[in-house]
Write a protein that binds this DNA or RNA. Structure first.
Lengths: 354, 354
DNA sequence: CTGTTAGCGCATTCAA
DNA sequence: TTGAATGCGCTAACAG
């Protein structure tokens, strides 16, 4: 059997309570005693049984998740995953609050962060808009000792404890590399459809995409970036306009949301010349466009993994534990029509094991 | 607070022991009593606290992992991950035994399975060679009530409880699709380098690759498959021979191991004509070849994820619990030189958080 | 400053 | 066939 608190107590010649004080860094122990106990811990190779500790504490973790409202499919998928986690709350000892704020609205986000802080959760996860105001609100959480992590989109400079999301520069580079290779020698410029330069993930993707095209595929022109604010209607208008202005477009990289509009524009297009399209996030829309050959590749981040990872990391931070970094790395999934996972065009039945 | 066994006992008007007997399907309860308790459980919505149960039982999970010996980089990486899991044993309440057997050796694998069974582990994971003999040995585990899962390579027909690995057909299709698109209009045949048709993952990849090339890229010839038995020297010889016999080769799909040999052959080649190379498994060798442009894409399965997933699933099976299927789906990672994760050319320092 | 004691939710003797 | 009592490893009152 591995050593327990009793063994420490015996080895150090003190009581359980004192051992507990040392283990949990509680005050009220003479430094000589503390040292004695610490040496005993070291000597017998004690490892705390977290499950037993949580049992004794009847620990529950109140967490708050903040994400953008609106009909962005990816964000709604993220919300679905959070709700799935809420259903697991009893088993996982969590109590999750879900808050939504208008997209790209810095002040609303700041208010939401401050309101959440007032409830003193054990941790908070937020899809960040990259602004000093938001960073300051996150800083206040940090000041109050509340672990805060960014989800999907990070802050450039902040005191957040962790980022649960993909490497967006790498995603942009990957898109660039695929675009360049898929196009081969086919002539024509490429156009980038972004959501907003206010969010860091979009900026990073753009930079990565640009860098690879310029370095590895010189001669391929990139048209001025279209900013569609993740809005399908606006995206459709912008893309349709681009086709009119540049009938020779060879490729489109959609690095934000609003892909419904992009797909509509692609369907409306009355030309035979093929366009290579790379988009982000596997949703019902991009999935069917991929199958139909309207989209060539989709880069995806697994919202379920992100939510589960966020919860694991928040728990670890709340307990001052280390995280398994390899387990928490969110992958950039690349989907072609050939490796689409199980079909969830039909929504999963209620209460299943997702 | 969520209901506990005490609440059940009170609601049913019986003692804790009786509740426990019903909960754990133990004998010695009158069916009338049993029914009373079951109704109480249903009525108050009881959910068992697995952590508390494990604490009371001082539960440890003895698991056995069986994998091929030899210098196959991927398998050694898998072993590294298993050893990392062994180091986490104290925390995760596991006791993992690691057994290696010569690759592609059906009889040795059968013996290892039977030997492992004799130790009566709580679960077993095996990198399977696809043979009825192996399937029968797995069947004996099943008969004895020992959960058994296949790892990396599955059995075609068996009573294994789970497969922890990628969808190899999809992987092959993906390779085919990438190959076809990367090559574009470049002429020339493609060659497939496999390990052995005795393992199911290799067969599945080949079938998927073939299917896509034939359907979506007709006119692209596939040369007869080279079988290198995952041996670098043999692979090098075969690939070099192919280059001599077919100087116009446009692409190579290496769907097994032995990539060191492939890379050596590529380096030796004295032609300027580009060859599109797609391989499996990110190792030190394929990583550097990817960086150098010798390999265009690497399809990878995350060995760490597979091992962690195997352990989670085995625990769940041992406890008769459900698994989060979304969490256990092993992804097909696609790496280009542009989205390589952290560099582990230098082995990670001992005892780090991997 | 330190120790005693009683749980947390569940499993498992041992009696009845 | 049923129940009372004890303990898993740890925390948290409450005394001393």
């Amino acid at each position: 059997m591995r050593p327990t608190v009793h063994d420490i107590a015996a080895a150090a010649g003190v009581s359980l309570a004192t051992v507990d004080r040392v283990l949990n860094l509680r005050p009220g122990v003479r430094s000589a005693t503390r040292e004695k106990v610490e040496q005993a811990i070291e000597r017998i190779g004690y490892i705390r049984d977290v499950a037993a500790a949580n049992l004794a504490k009847s620990r529950v973790y109140p967490f708050t998740f903040i994400l953008p409202s609106g009909d962005n499919s990816f964000m709604r998928g993220l919300e679905t995953e959070i709700r799935a986690a809420m259903r697991r709350s009893a088993v996982e000892r969590t109590a999750i609050s879900l808050v939504t704020v208008p997209p790209f609205d810095v002040e609303a986000l700041e208010r939401a962060l401050d309101d959440a802080r007032a409830t003193r959760p054990a941790g908070l996860a937020v899809v960040a808009v990259d602004s000093p105001i938001v960073a300051a609100a996150v800083g206040r959480l940090h000041r109050d000792g509340i672990p805060a992590i960014t989800l999907v989109s990070d802050l450039s400079v902040s005191t957040r404890d962790h980022f649960a999301g993909i490497d967006n520069s790498a995603a942009g580079r990957t898109a660039g590399s695929l675009m360049g290779r898929f196009l081969g020698t086919r002539p024509g410029p490429v156009v980038v459809l972004a959501g907003s330069m206010l969010v860091r993930d979009h900026r990073d993707r753009l930079a990565g995409f640009r860098a690879v095209l310029e370095a590895d595929f010189p001669g391929r022109t990139i048209l001025p970036v279209l900013e569609g604010h993740d809005d399908p209607a606006e995206a459709e208008r912008l893309v349709t306009g681009a086709f009119v202005g540049h009938p020779d477009i060879a490729g489109i990289y959609s690095l934000g949301a609003g892909n419904r509009g992009l797909i509509a524009a692609l369907k409306m297009r009355r030309t035979e010349a093929p366009v290579c399209v790379i988009a982000h996030e596997l949703t019902a829309h991009t999935r069917s466009a991929l199958k139909d050959g309207l989209i060539d590749a989709v880069l995806n981040q697994d919202a379920g993994h992100e939510v589960r990872s966020a919860i694991r990391v928040l728990k670890a931070k709340a307990d001052g534990q280390a995280v398994l970094s390899a387990q928490e790395r969110i992958r950039i999934d690349i989907f072609l029509k050939d490796n689409l996972p199980f079909d969830d065009a039909a929504p999963a039945p209620e209460g299943d094991d997702i």
